[in-house]
Write a protein that binds this DNA or RNA. Structure first.
Length: 860
RNA sequence: GGGCGAGUGGCGGAAUGGCAUACGCGCUGGAUUCAAAAUCCAGUGAGAGCAAUCUCUUGAGGGUUCAACUCCCUCCUCGCCCACCA
């Protein structure tokens, strides 16, 4: 009848089909029944995949297996579960793949999704596929566009013309987050700075909230730290330096050119500021043009700096620069006249784009000063009163007290910052300032495969506006100048959403700063929704990160045509209780999604401030050679092959048993065989006819072990320690196999049932198969999770460790909670202990109840 | 340069103040087999010993403690993230 060999190839597809037919994993609809909405919920979410052309490798499912186990266990523990899956299919990689293989991106995306879904389906996951979403579906991106319109209404989406990161290979602008070490994150091409019109999202307005609310989140520390660093808050002061032309007595007259402002966190070092440095792109330079005697040379330097890629700037550690001749600045602290330089080691995008250089206490300034022979003045000393300071070999960046700083001498540097800032502020020369490294999000891409930005440019509206109102309108938010003609920026009406991405033949990037959509006349030319006169559509598209910044909300209410998500349903299901994905998203997806979520909260769309309550990051599965799995190294392992050879349950158990979930560990086929053997052993135990001896007593030992195992597996699943959960299951099964002849059949049956329930989240197919074999009619996955009996775990007899002088010398079995003096008596009578206490007297006894007794002894 | 984390058998790892090396892999020996695979049994950190047993051992050094893989300090090595951010 039933086969005696464990045959996953046969049983796994069988159960997958049945589960699907039974709709075992359909999420219960909330709102319909009272009991359901009263039931506690758990929302378990994987970072949805980007369906690439290569398909999945064995590393991808690791996180999905973990969430599968977690959600299965939670369901059995009585929770309402939401566990959906979907596809993040817009964006550069999909488009580049499509261009390379000469297939339309839409066709490629569909093909890749199909392949991914097939690969996932053989692993036996409990996704509710009725809630599948796809970011490229117009019904979905309608709401991505809708969010953009809301951002626009609140002036958090604006147009700006400034130099941004440009990838010459992908032919598009990129966000700061898409650049790694000066290279394009997708294709590793050096990034250039190119000024162009861009849609920007004002994420900086949320910098403080994004930073502060991190404390509430139950996330791994390193992810939170990564976000903190990325936001990069620093408190300091903006200090004004007055300018002087070469004609020393005559200060510059133009009001605009009177000052240069710098940002510093170290006001205490201002007496050591011996020159100023301005970033080449800083507009101050152009404004000072007439005063600069060597302007031509300066202009040349600036031109050269502009053409350097980010990478060249960073790689070339030797500092370059040029002095602005004919113009100097006054150090507001000591009234000293100091030179002004231009150098590309100062960034335009941070602070004011100008710095006060303190070469004695900043290594970068130090290098620059040395190269150009500028004075280096030490104002912080480690020892105070300072000995004659030796000539510095490098900048002293440590702590210390102030010297050479007139009345502030002797102050601890922190106090110095306070006092000097106060002193300058009173004279209106400084202002406390906070700066962030976080920059506004460059939100437009000059590419085809993305959500169209729902904006229309109307010349007529601009003209009407000029005629009819005196209202001040603002460039970027309200109008835009293209080729010297102004246009009003008109948002698409909400009722006209979605703005569908037209299907076109030529979708290759143009490189002109416009997307290929610009060539589709019939799409670009539209009626203005305001004045109904001819107008033009925005042709840039949204970046890859747009759709993924809110997808977790849509799963709650996938089919809603009226709103993004029903607020009541959102109240019930949000926030995501368990979110699992790669750590590489710490400063991209996770920060963007938090930003959008906070915005949606502020405009009343969602009920909670934060989207993801708890977060675990998946550790990488490396190749057998220890390198990252990649086509390049030929070390990629395909999950389909593993499933075909060993079965999905083996793959699942192995990947969870490899080691700690967040660690990256190399694939090892022999270890995988170990997981297979574990499942074989279970199958074998169940297929053997049990020989039953009658009238046996309940086996107390195995009962105790069972209860311990229930506790261990339950706790370990909760804290994502799957490796030790599996190890405790192994211990239990080994013991059952060994002891089965000493276990009465009625007890063995219960034991086996409970074991299978504990196993079922890890190896759902095998557990189901054996569950049926035990005679059960209803799926094991609908069973209740077992409780453990505390009384079995709390043992009556316990082992107490006996130490002499802190060293282990034996263990004694005693009744639990025996008083110290009794234990002492027993221990000292013990033969083994006697050896170590002979001829000694006891100086001290350390006793930890039910754990240890330690005698400190000395020889007579 | 800054931030975060890690270093334990031949390997993946367990233990997070209280018997270091659970569990798995590998290896060695044996059973089974014509033979192999699979399976089962025994052993497996190092050193000494016939043995009971003892000594040493968690990257290095120091400290706290009756007791340290675990806590503190210094150093070394590796990994990840960020980086001319003033």
């Amino acid at each position: 009848m039933s086969s005696t060999k464990y045959n996953p190839q046969k049983i796994e597809p069988k159960w997958q089909k049945r589960w699907e037919l039974q709709k075992l994993y359909k999420t219960s609809t909330v709102g319909g029944s009272v009991t359901d909405s009263k039931k506690k919920k758990v929302y378990v979410l994987d970072m949805f995949p980007y369906p690439s052309g290569q398909g999945l490798h064995v590393g991808h499912p690791k996180g999905y297996i973990a969430t599968d186990i977690y959600s299965r266990a939670k369901k059995m523990q009585g929770y309402n579960i939401l566990r959906p899956m979907g596809w993040d299919a817009f964006g550069l990689p999909a488009e580049n793949y499509a261009i390379k293989h000469k297939i339309h991106p839409e066709t490629a995306a569909q093909k890749n999704i199909k392949r991914f879904k097939e690969q996932l389906s053989v692993l036996g996951f409990n996704y509710d596929w009725e809630r599948e979403i796809n970011t490229t579906d117009p019904k979905y991106y309608k709401w991505t566009q809708w969010i953009f319109l809301q951002l626009f209404k609140k002036k958090l989406a604006y147009k700006s013309y400034e130099p941004i990161n440009w990838c010459p290979s992908c032919k598009t602008g990129l966000a700061n987050e898409d650049v790694e070490n000066g290279l394009c994150e997708r294709c590793s091409t050096p990034i250039e700075q190119k000024p162009m019109y861009q849609w920007m999202l004002k994420i900086t307005k949320y910098a403080e909230k994004l930073l502060n609310d991190l404390t509430e989140l139950d996330w791994e520390k390193h992810i939170k730290e990564a976000q903190r660093n990325w936001i990069g808050k620093s408190n300091g002061a903006t200090i004004s330096f007055e300018l002087k032309t070469q004609n020393k007595k005559q200060k510059t007259t133009t009001k605009k050119l009177k000052l240069i402002k710098v940002f510093t966190t170290r006001t205490d070092t201002i007496f050591g500021a011996t020159y100023l440095v301005i970033a080449p792109e800083n507009s101050i330079i152009k404004n000072l043009k007439l005063k600069i005697k060597n302007y031509n040379e300066v202009a040349k330097y600036i031109e050269k700096a502009k053409h350097k890629t980010e990478l060249e700037r960073k790689e070339n550690k030797t500092k370059t620069g040029i002095e602005l001749k004919g113009i100097t600045a006054i150090n507001p602290a000591n009234e000293e006249e100091i030179p002004i330089w231009v150098s590309d080691y100062v960034l335009t995008v941070y602070g004011t784009g100008a710095i006060m250089a303190v070469p004695a206490h900043d290594q970068r300034d130090f290098e620059f000063a040395q190269k150009f022979n500028l004075p280096i003045k030490q104002v912080i000393c480690e020892n105070y009163p300072a000995p004659i300071c030796p000539i510095l070999k490098k900048a002293y960046e440590g702590n210390g007290k102030l010297v050479g700083s007139e009345k502030f001498n002797g102050l601890q540097y922190k106090e110095g910052i306070e006092k000097i800032t106060e002193w300058l502020t009173k004279r209106k020369l400084a202002k406390k300032t906070t700066n962030y490294k976080l920059r506004d999000w460059v939100f437009s891409r000059q590419r085809y495969w993305g959500e169209p930005i729902p904006i229309i440019y109307c010349r007529k509206c601009w003209e009407n506006e000029q005629k009819t109102t005196n209202k001040k309108i603002k460039e970027g938010y309200d109008y835009i100048k293209i080729n010297d003609l102004e246009y009003m920026i008109v948002p698409v009406l909400e009722k006209d959403l979605p703005v569908k991405l037209p299907k076109i033949k030529n979708y290759k990037p143009t490189g002109t700063g416009e997307s290929p959509l610009a060539n589709i006349k019939e799409w670009v030319n539209v009626k203005c929704p305001r004045c109904k006169k001819p107008a033009k559509r925005e042709t840039n598209t949204m970046p890859q990160w747009a759709g993924s910044s809110w997808y977790y909300l849509r799963y709650i209410d996938t089919k809603n045509n009226k709103t993004l998500v029903d607020k009541k349903k959102e109240l019930y299901w949000s926030p995501v209780d368990m979110y699992v994905g790669g750590a590489e998203h710490a400063t991209r997806h996770l920060i963007y999604a938090r930003f959008w979520h906070k915005f949606l909260y502020d405009i009343g769309i969602v009920n909670y401030k934060e989207p993801f309550k708890k977060l675990y990051s998946v550790g990488l599965i490396k190749g057998e050679d220890g390198r990252k799995m990649s086509k390049r190294w030929g070390n990629v392992i395909n999950p389909d092959d593993i499933v075909a050879r060993f079965g999905a349950d083996t793959l699942r158990v192995y990947e969870m048993f490899m080691g700690p979930f967040s660690d990256s560990i190399s694939w090892n086929i022999e270890n995988l065989m170990g997981a297979k053997r574990f499942l074989d052993k279970i199958f074998k135990l169940h297929s053997k006819t049990q020989i039953i001896k009658h009238k046996q007593n309940t086996n107390k030992e195995i009962e105790k072990l069972l209860n311990k195992t229930i506790k261990k597996v339950t706790d370990d699943i909760e804290s994502f320690k799957f490796n030790t959960a599996i190890s405790s299951l192994m211990i239990l099964i080994n013991e059952i196999v060994k002891e089965q002849k000493n276990i009465p059949s009625s007890q063995l049956k219960i034991l086996n049932s409970k074991f299978l329930i504990l196993l079922s989240p890890f190896a759902p197919h095998l557990a189901e198969e054996l569950w049926k074999k035990l005679g059960n009619k209803i799926s094991i996955h609908l069973e209740k999770w077992p409780n453990y009996d505390k009384n079995f775990i709390l043992e009556k007899k316990i082992n107490i460790i006996v130490q002499v002088n802190g060293r282990f010398r034996g263990a004694i079995e005693i009744d639990k909670n025996l008083p110290e003096n009794k234990i002492k008596e027993i221990a000292l009578k013990n033969e083994k202990i006697k050896i170590w206490t002979a001829n000694c007297y006891i100086v001290k006894t350390i006793f930890v109840p039910n754990k240890i007794i330690n005698f400190i002894v000395k020889q007579y």
